[in-house]
Nucleic acid binder design. Sequence first.
DNA 1: AAATTTATTGCAAGCTTTTGCAAATAAAAT
DNA 2: ATTTTATTTGCAAAAGCTTGCAATAAATTT
Lengths: 140, 140
Amino acid sequence: MKKTVDIITRLSEHGYRLTPQRMMVLAAIEKSDHHISAEEIYAQVVTKYPHFNISTVYRTLELLHRLGLVTETDLGGGRVRYHPADKGHHHHLVCQECGRVIDLDESVMDHLKLVLRRDYNFEPDIRHMAFFGTCADCGK
Amino acid sequence: MKKTVDIITRLSEHGYRLTPQRMMVLAAIEKSDHHISAEEIYAQVVTKYPHFNISTVYRTLELLHRLGLVTETDLGGGRVRYHPADKGHHHHLVCQECGRVIDLDESVMDHLKLVLRRDYNFEPDIRHMAFFGTCADCGK
DNA sequence: AAATTTATTGCAAGCTTTTGCAAATAAAAT
DNA sequence: ATTTTATTTGCAAAAGCTTGCAATAAATTT
């Protein structure tokens, strides 16, 4: 399990600056126990740093995602949710009827990953997927 | 291959009204040879119907998607793209480096669909997926 | 054919996310 | 320690999409 300090090292190694804003966004994501939204990160940081702007949250999230340190997932609800990539890769089933979110083990995507690599020579970024559909209860 | 008239029948059967706006949105989607965006549909219809509003496009697309007549897919580029569901189910690989879009046969998702149905009793709506990643050329 | 009912539309406002740009500042060079 | 540099930030505006609501109009009933 990677720690915040390792992510900081990665940023530094890639030549990105270690700004207080980035450190606070990172802390908010790492300490969150759920799939956090940009607005939630903003709300946490702005209490300590009143000038803080939400566009910095989005830019930091884009950077962390591009470096593979954070996953971005649309779980419905009209906003994207973020999760530290090191806190376990997993996927979700989202019921479009009742909104229920079912956790899925990472391994369910292994076969598809293999096919895309082998048959299409494509390296997919499948670390945190959400599939929409109808759950057992709602399907009668 | 389903025709526009069949979609109109389905709408009518479900008790939805056959308004001129809906007919024009439908015509724009059906006659498009690519994955069309809401803005493109709006631009086409508004030339014939100046009062036309883009919120009607989004509401019509949501309805057609809910009835399974149209697929919604994020192919990158900051906007969702729409496609008639009857024009062949297929999927895409989107390269995050060069933006290249590779077409994928519907069957690549068969195994995953089976697993989700069998092991999770979940009926997934996997009719038009896009997977992001790195294509053969960009992966060196 | 007219009246009734109820879904749908247009409009305006709002929400989430992105972007251009000048000012600020982290890190490197002196 | 100071200056230089290039990245990053805050701000404002905009893009894409959604939603509340009163007015409109499709379809049903009379």
